[in-house]
Simulated assay, not measured.
Amino acid sequence: MAEFVLVPGAWLGAWAWDEVAAELRAAGHGVHPLTLSGLAEKRDVPAGQRTHVQDVVGEVERLDLRDVVLVGHSYSGIPVGQAAALIGDRLARLVLVDAEVPVEGGSFASGWWEGQAKFEAILAGGDGFWQPPAVDEFEGQGLTDEQTARLVAGATPHPAATLTEPATPARPLSDLPATYIKCLLDGPEPNSDVAALLAGEKWRLVEMNTGHWPMFSEPRPLAALLASEAA
């Protein structure tokens, strides 16, 4: 059985994985959802992007986990991808769920689809945080009204420094065994950085016909997919 470390994306805490975690535990796996510094119950902890890398590495080391399947969603692909390279032979597989990937010297802001200047303007209006989206911004993502309400109610402002601090990967991600889960309602194709990694021998692509938050919209299929990637 694998040890899953589940890391949520922007605005979210470990609670976002509750349904997925329950399914994985029922299948006999060890499951360790992780709230990153500055978010949810840790919202008062100062955080930069390097803090989040250390959050992940520290959790694996603190629990002395082996055969780790390290799962990152959305923003957290950046710190999780870097952490995967730092935990050595503890890593069984990296799984990125509709996520960004770390690029040397790049950040979440620099990879923003509308350009870095546009994203930094959004942050400038957030008093040091990226404010959570309104309910209508989740439309078209395969979420029920109840799922959207739960997501919005639990979201907390995301520390801006984690989004602008550059990544410093310790080794090429192409060297790591990895699966990329593309959620098709959020766009049919991975971005160019992910596509380049998928061209390598150690990365594989899996698609889900749902939106960007499958831990809410399709928790059982997502859990089954994660379990299959640990086999």
Rank of each mutant, 00 (worst) to 15 (best):
I181V: 15
A155K: 04
F216I: 08
I87T: 02
A121P: 08
W11A: 01
P177F: 02
D175Q: 13
W15V: 12
F129I: 04
V135N: 09
R25T: 15
P190A: 05
H32C: 03
D67A: 10
L36E: 06
G38W: 00
T210G: 11
L222W: 00
I78K: 03
P159C: 11
D64G: 15
L34M: 09
P8A: 13
G48Q: 12
S110G: 02
E114P: 01
V60E: 02
A223N: 02
Y180M: 10
L185G: 06
E165A: 07
G38N: 10
E100H: 14
P177W: 04
A178F: 05
V80A: 00
V60M: 13
A85C: 02
S37A: 15
M208C: 09
A134N: 07
L198R: 12
G88S: 02
Q82D: 14
H32S: 08
E120R: 10
T148H: 00
E59N: 10
S228R: 15
A153R: 14
K202N: 15
V20R: 06
L36W: 00
G140L: 10
R25H: 12
I122W: 05
P133V: 02
L222H: 01
G81R: 09
L225C: 09
T164A: 04
P190V: 08
K202H: 13
L184M: 14
T156I: 09
Q49I: 02
A27G: 07
W213N: 13
T35C: 00
D55T: 07
P79K: 10
P188K: 15
Y180Q: 00
A21G: 11
L184E: 08
V80E: 04
R62V: 13
P190K: 04
V60I: 14
L184P: 04
G128F: 14
V135C: 01
W17S: 03
L24K: 08
G111I: 10
T35A: 08
H212N: 10
V152F: 04
P46D: 13
L197W: 03
H32D: 11
E100I: 10
I122S: 08
A92W: 12
I87L: 07
T162E: 02
L185A: 09
V56L: 01
R50E: 15
R90T: 09
P46V: 13
R171L: 14
E137I: 00
E114S: 14
Y180L: 02
L123E: 03
S228P: 06
L197F: 00
E23W: 05
I122N: 00
A199R: 12
S37Q: 07
E137N: 11
R90M: 09
G106I: 02
P166A: 13
A16V: 06
E100W: 12
S37C: 10
P172Y: 12
D89C: 09
G211Y: 03
T144H: 11
V53I: 06
W113P: 08
W11C: 05
H73E: 12
A27I: 11
I122H: 07
V135M: 15
L96S: 00
T164P: 07
A109Y: 01
L6D: 11
A99H: 01
S37F: 03
V101C: 01
H212V: 07
A92P: 02
W130H: 11
L143V: 03
A199H: 07
F138T: 04
A2Q: 03
G88Y: 05
G58C: 09
I78T: 12
D18A: 15
